[in-house]
């Protein structure tokens, strides 16, 4: 199952489906990095609203995506983590430290726009 990536101005938006395998996640990571380079994007939003489980692998992949993209000079924000998923994540000790988070797509875009302003 491939993760669709949408380009909206300087921002790329990747929307996760419910049941992603490790291979899907790895595929997403390389696709995102490639497209950030290709479109010279300044921000990436990863929307995980549909994800019902965020385990250590998914969490680590998200962190890696954010770090790699930062090395390309762009910002990543994770949006849409569900309350129950967040609760399970912190029990597991997965806190996505150093990665920006926002409530939903709208908030994620607002966060990035704010960032772009201060970066100028």
């Amino acid at each position: 199952m491939e993760v669709p990536i949408l380009k909206q101005g300087p921002v790329l938006i990747a929307t996760f489906q419910a049941a992603l395998s490790d291979a899907d996640l790895n595929q997403l990571r390389s696709a995102l990095v490639q497209q950030v380079v290709r479109f010279r994007s300044r921000g990436v939003i990863v929307d995980v609203t549909a994800m019902d489980v965020m385990d250590s692998f998914a969490s680590r992949t998200l962190r890696e995506i954010a770090h790699i993209i930062r090395l390309r000079g762009a910002e990543t924000v994770i949006v849409g983590i569900q309350p129950e998923v967040a609760f399970a994540m912190v029990q597991l000790g997965l806190t996505l430290e150093g990665v920006a988070t926002a409530l939903d797509l709208e908030e994620g875009l607002a966060y990035l726009n704010q960032k772009f302003k201060t970066m100028k």
Binding site: V79, I81, P83, A86, F87, M89, V90, Q91, T95, L96, T101, A102, L103, E107
Partner: peptide, 12 residues
């Protein structure tokens, strides 16, 4: 501490 961390995951 966990409550604080989980809230941040939701963007708060």
């Amino acid at each position: 501490v966990q409550t604080v961390e989980a809230s941040r995951l939701l963007g708060a």
